[in-house]
Each structure stands twice: as C-alpha cells, then as structure tokens.
C-alpha cells in the first residue's frame, strides 16, 4: 500500500465531528491489525490495548486495516481563474493531484469524479473528464452532499474565488454545505495558491486581464500596492484555510509546480509549505 493510500485510509477511519462537536467512531473498522498508536480523542475505548498502555505508560490504541474498500471521489474547479500560473497553469497542478489521488486506488476501490452535475466512474474516464459548464462551487457541493456514499474520501481542488465572502448573505448556506460534505466524507481541499503570492511581477502602469471574464484594466502598481497585494493574498489564504478547517475539511495548498507534492503535504506525508508567503 503506497503512503498516500495509507494516509487516505487513516483519514477515512478518523473519527469526525457530528452536529455540535460530538465525536463518533466511524463504522467499518476492520480486523486486520496494522499498528499501535497513541490514543486520540474519539477512539473507540474497546480498541485500547491495555497491555501496551501498561508498557508505554500512556493509552495506546490498536489500529486495524479497514476491510471495506475506499471510495475516492474528486472534483476540480476547471474555471478560467485556475488556468493561470507563473510557469504552468494551476489546472495542470490540479491534474497532477488528481492523478495522484486516483493513483492511490487499488483494485477493490471505487473512483469517481464529479463533473458538472454528473458522476464519472472509473479512473481513466474520471481523469479525462472535462466540465462542459462553468464551475459552480455551491452546486457542486450540493451534488456531492447528496450523491457521495457515506464514508467516501473526497478531494476538491479549487481557488476559492467563487466561495462567497464570510460577510455575504450567501455565505451561510455554502458553509452549511461544507459542513454537510465533511460530515458525510473525509474531505480534503487543495486551495490553489496564488501564483504571485510572494509578489506581483508588475511595476508601474500595467494592463491586467481577468481570467474569467476577459475584462482588462490599466492599473498602477507601486511599491506599496505590491506590498498590499502580498498581504491581501496571505490574509485571503489564511481566511480560506480557517473556513474549510472549521467546516471539518483537511486543507492543503496547491502549488502550481507540483500537484502531487501538494497532495502529499496536505496529508502530512512530507513537510508542509510555509503557508504564509515570505515577507507577508
């Protein structure tokens, strides 16, 4: 079993919050012993290995291999706002992450991808599926909350620009959907990191085009404007991360240079990137 799959399995097994923060064990734990690990809040007390606890001096929990197969689901924001980047597009990095995600599947697992309002089953079709309609986060979350099997592992890759602002009246329903999806699945989101998170490559008067609408504006970028931009990007990432985490999602940053590594970082398999940009 590759490291990513093991991490996904651990994630799928982890207990999660339900309702007002009550932890409940997930059903479906198997019987094939895998390892001992320190007790974590929410572990089933029946899984505590008292002999090991006595030896080590702290509570130890027996971990068993889940016998049920994984359901690996994913959706990607394919909108034009993701087709930007410094050296390569964010969608390319998203494809890397998607390949790694579905690559973790084994024969008994099920892979599926949410594209528009449909499910594309099977690894190859899922990898090559392309959206026919503009990405709509709310619609996609609604669909995921209703159709994904309980206990599925979900990967979402998006830039969060279509997530309503926290102070917006439409933010509440979307946040509820985030909670609903996280309650149903082991949800992971890779938030596309702004390609210019560490500084805009623009000085003076420059024309900038909106990737989504094509609208362009001539803007002046002075030193202070560039500093404000870096700070705003860092703040936006921080707020987005907190929002998804509060909803029970695992959060990672999608780095345009390596989507696979971004996914590994999200699962803690390799060292995390410094999420706050240098100099922010």
């Amino acid at each position: 079993m590759n490291g990513l799959r093991a991490a996904i399995v651990r994630g799928a097994r982890r207990t999660r919050r339900r309702g007002d923060g009550v932890h409940a064990p997930r059903s479906g734990d198997g019987y094939e012993f895998v390892q001992l690990r320190g007790y974590e809040e929410g572990d089933d007390p029946r899984r505590i290995d008292w002999a090991a606890t006595a030896r080590v001096g702290s509570l130890q929990t027996r971990v068993f291999l889940e016998e049920t197969s994984l359901v690996l689901a994913a959706f990607i924001d394919e909108s034009a706002s993701m087709r930007v980047g410094r050296k390569r597009r964010l969608t390319d990095a998203a494809d890397d992450a998607l390949r790694a995600w579905f690559g973790a599947a084994e024969s008994e697992d099920r892979t599926l991808r949410i594209v528009d309002d449909r499910i594309v089953n099977g690894t190859r079709p899922a990898l090559h599926a392309r959206a026919a309609r503009p990405f709509d986060l709310r619609r996609t979350l609604t669909f995921a909350a209703h159709v994904l099997p309980v206990g599925a592992s979900l990967l979402a890759v998006l830039d969060g620009f279509d997530l309503p602002a926290e102070e917006s009246p439409s933010a509440g329903p979307v946040d509820e959907l985030l909670l609903a999806v996280a309650a149903r699945c082991d949800a992971t989101v890779l938030l596309a990191r702004d390609p210019w998170y560490d500084g805009l490559p623009l000085r003076g008067l420059r024309r900038v085009r909106d990737a989504e609408s094509g609208r362009s504006r001539l803007l002046y970028f002075g030193r202070r404007a560039r500093e404000r931009f870096v700070a705003a990007v860092a703040e936006r990432e921080k707020r987005l991360t907190a929002r998804f985490r509060n909803a029970g999602w695992r959060v990672g940053a999608l780095d345009e240079t390596d989507g696979r590594a971004s996914l590994d970082r999200a699962f803690g398999l390799i060292g995390a990137l410094d999420f706050a940009p240098a100099g922010a």
């Binding site: 620009f161 085009r209 504006r217 002046y220």
Partner: peptide
C-alpha cells in the same frame, strides 16, 4: 496583458487611490 484569476480581488488588494492612468 497578465491574466489574473480575479481582477476584482487584485483591484481591491492593490488599488491605488491616485488615478495614474
């Protein structure tokens, strides 16, 4: 022109009060 994911965010983040253009 440089394509940016969200021009509104860029304008709000880096907008200058002086209308230089």
């Amino acid at each position: 022109a440089l394509a940016y994911s969200n021009l509104a965010f860029l304008e709000a983040a880096a907008a200058t009060r002086v209308p230089w253009p």
